[in-house]
Design a protein around this nucleic acid. Structure first.
Lengths: 189, 189
DNA sequence: GTAAACATGTAACCGGTTACATGATTAC
DNA sequence: GTAATCATGTAACCGGTTACATGTTTAC
């Protein structure tokens, strides 16, 4: 289960459930997210499995924190998972599914409007990712940070590929002879 | 719900649950998939909602087929959904999540091995997509086929972006000064 | 005072997968 | 005979989301 391994990995630096929730809302949300209501029970499960150990630490602001840290057992499980290689699993990209049936939108203008909206959103996302990326000095990164940086680069490349597709698709739509469905077999010259 | 709209769209050409299952296992599986055990109950639900209508047709090989076809109501719901624009939803790409924590794999060689395996799989996928793509004559396509073709192009671009990332990441890993953790503070000259 | 951030949880629901059950037809 | 393909479903489970419940501290 992906979330379990992710939590073990993140808990190599001691973290509370709340901390981890913030990580999923920030850096990781590009490819994996988790709600706090899922994180808390999962942490307990991992503690029972002894992949994590926990202690309670008073907080200076707010209630006491339950801080988790990965165990040797947990880290072994994690590295065994990674050693199995890339975890391919069925992907779901709703937008592409929409494109697949986009002819039902009503015509070339509707298709173009849809894709133009997609392009605009992706442009914003690409700019945001670029801004983060450009501020990173690769040479300064720790091993952990360097791998996080690699995943950011992957996210950025995918967003830019989708953006490039939008432009291509808009061109292809424009170039497509408009089915101005002539009532008669052919428009008489 | 994505699956519901997809089924309505696909049933613009009359199809049985079995037929639809085949579509999800073939063309659509690049971004959305569904098991027959999910398709059948969903079709019944859509029939009750009158987005689909059904009739039973004897099959020449095997049991009788239940053939579904979208209704006007269903198609209206579909086009309203598409008119709302791109359906952004949390994405999950397990491989990228693995990269995010790949420093736990054991070192630069382990990371490189992981990424090399990914590159090899993606190379195969890219070749398969390219082979399909290259055989398509865009001018010959109907509107529906053209949009399916666009989604194929999107899938291809994403796969190729990931592939390009693999090469970049392997280079970045190789270029990274190996933390050959010297026992002494610095190798004495 | 009150809103925001800190902090931890439970309960109900839902979309989706895996496993199971049934049976006809065709090709070997 | 038997395996593969055609064909339709049900049941149990599971990962994940939404909504709910509770309480503290800080900044305005």
């Amino acid at each position: 289960m992906v979330l379990e391994y992710l939590l073990v990995a993140l808990c190599r630096t001691p973290s509370s459930g709340y901390d981890l929730g913030a990580v999923f809302k920030a850096a990781l949300r590009l490819f994996w997210s988790a709600e706090l209501s899922q994180v808390y029970p999962t942490l307990k499960r991992l503690e029972r499995r002894r992949w994590l150990k926990a202690r309670t630490v008073p907080s200076d602001r707010g209630p006491a924190r339950r801080v988790y840290e990965s165990t040797e057992r947990g880290r072994e499980a994690l590295s065994a998972w990674l050693a199995q290689g890339p975890a391919f699993r069925e992907e779901r990209y709703a937008v592409a599914a929409q494109v697949f049936v986009l002819d039902a939108a009503g015509g070339p203008e509707a298709s173009a409007a849809f894709i133009a909206r997609l392009r605009d959103s992706l442009t914003d996302r690409a700019a945001a990712l670029a801004a983060v990326d450009d501020q990173i000095k690769v040479a300064d990164l720790t091993d952990a940070e360097f791998h996080q940086y690699l995943s950011l680069r992957l996210g950025r490349r995918v967003v830019e590929a989708r953006l490039a597709w939008c432009r291509e698709a808009l061109e292809a739509l424009a170039a497509r002879p408009s089915k101005a469905k002539p009532k008669r077999p052919t428009g008489r010259r």
